[in-house]
Design a protein around this nucleic acid. Structure first.
Lengths: 195, 195
DNA sequence: AATATAATCTATCGTCGCTAGATATTGACT
DNA sequence: AGTCAATATCTAGCGACGATAGATTATATT
C-alpha cells in the first residue's frame, strides 16, 4: 500500500506546513494576523482544506503550543545538563525558562496565554505537556521534600516573572536579580518547609 | 451652565453603563461575548455611540482593567489592614491577591491577559496602575532592603500562582501550600539577599 | 471504460470591528 | 418666536473573519 503511504505522508507534510506557517506568522506579526485565509494562501490550498486537518483555528494554535512544550522541555533539560552542581542547575533552568519565554513570545502565548482546549489535568495530560514540568522537578528535587509543590511554585514564579517582564509591568534590565531571588528561595526552601 | 453640566453628567453615566455592561457580560460569558453590537443593545443606543466614548473595543477592555486595578489595590490594602503583625500581613496580602484573581477571572483577564495599550512604564503609568504595586510594597518592605526587586518578584510569584491555578496547569486544592511557600521565601529573603 | 470514492474548490453564511453619510435634536442669535 | 448652525444619534454598509454547504475535479476499483 505504498500509494496510501505516500498520500498520508503528503498529508502529514501539509499539516506540518500549516503549523509552521501559523507559528512563523504569529512570531513575526502576532497571533491576530494568523487567519485561516492567510494560512490557506501560505500553503497554496483553499480554506476548507485546513478544516480537514484541524477542527478550528484554536486547534492550530494548540498544535503550535504542543511544539512549544516539546521545545521548552528540551531547552530546560539542556540547561540542566550543562550545569555544574545542583544550585547551578537550578539557576540555569530558571534562566533558560525565562529566556525561552522572552525569545519566542508568540510561541509562549500559544502555550500559556491564548485560550486553549489543551488538557492539563494530570491523568489525561499529553506527555509533551508534562515533560517540561518533569525537567523542572529534576533540578528542584535535591532541595526539598514536597517536590511537587515546590516545583509548581518554582514554575509559577518563573512564569510570573516572564509574564510581567514580557508585558512591561516590571522594570526591564532587572530580571537577573529577580531570578536569583527565586532560585535562592528554592535553595532555602528545605529549612523553611518542614512545619 | 447647568445644562451642559447635565449633559456631560449623562454622558459620564452612559459611559459607566458601557463599562459595567462589558464587565458583566465578560464575567458571565467571557470576553469573546463582549461585542460592540451587544453592548449597544445593552445600553439601548446604536453602535456608533460607543465610538464617541471609546476609540475601540480594546479601549473598553482597558477601562474595565483600570477598574480592576483600583479594586485590587483596595483589596490588598484591606487585607494588609486586617493583619496582625508583619508576617500575617504578607500572608493576607498573598491570599487576597490570589483570591482576587480567581474570583473575578474576566476582570483579571482584562488586567493581565488580554492585549492592552495600557502603559506600565514607570513615569507615564496611571496612578491606579501603581497603587496595587505600592500596597504590596508596603507589606514587603519590612522584610528586605531592595524593596522594589522583592516586591516585583513577590508580585510575579503571586501572578504566576494565580495564572497556573486559573488555567488548571497545577493541581487545584493545593494553593494554600504554594502561597505559604512564597510568603516564607519573602520572610527568609533578608538573610539571603545581601550578597 | 464506467463507476464509486476521495480530494479539493467556489461560493456563501452570519458575525465581527468600525465608519461614512444621512437625519434628527438641540442651543444660540436676531 | 423663528432661523440657522452645531451637536447628537441613527441607518446602512465596508471589508475581513471563522466556518460550511454543495458542486467539481481527480483518483482508484471493478
Amino acid at each position: 500500500m505504498t500509494v496510501t503511504d505516500r498520500k498520508s505522508r503528503e498529508r502529514a507534510e501539509r499539516e506540518d506546513r500549516i503549523v509552521a506557517a501559523a507559528r512563523a506568522i504569529a512570531e513575526s506579526e502576532g497571533w491576530e494576523a494568523v487567519t485561516i485565509r492567510r494560512l490557506a494562501n501560505e500553503i497554496e490550498y483553499s480554506q476548507p482544506v485546513l478544516y480537514s486537518h484541524f477542527a478550528s483555528r484554536d486547534a492550530i494554535v494548540a498544535a503550535v503550543a504542543v511544539e512549544g512544550f516539546k521545545e521548552l522541555a528540551a531547552a530546560l533539560r539542556a540547561a540542566a545538563d550543562a550545569a555544574d552542581g545542583q544550585g547551578d542547575a537550578l539557576m540555569r533552568v530558571a534562566r533558560g525558562y525565562f529566556a525561552f519565554a522572552l525569545s519566542r513570545p508568540a510561541l509562549y502565548d500559544a502555550m500559556f496565554i491564548l485560550p486553549t482546549q489543551l488538557m492539563f489535568a494530570e491523568a489525561e495530560t499529553r506527555a509533551e505537556l508534562r515533560d517540561g514540568f518533569e525537567a523542572i522537578t529534576a533540578v528542584v528535587s535535591p532541595f526539598c521534600t514536597d517536590v511537587e509543590i515546590v516545583t509548581e511554585t518554582f514554575w509559577a514564579a518563573l512564569h510570573g516573572l516572564a509574564e510581567l517582564e514580557r508585558s512591561g509591568r516590571v522594570r526591564s534590565g532587572m530580571h537577573e536579580k529577580r531570578i536569583a531571588l527565586v532560585v535562592q528561595a528554592i535553595i532555602n526552601a528545605e529549612s523553611a518547609e518542614p512545619n
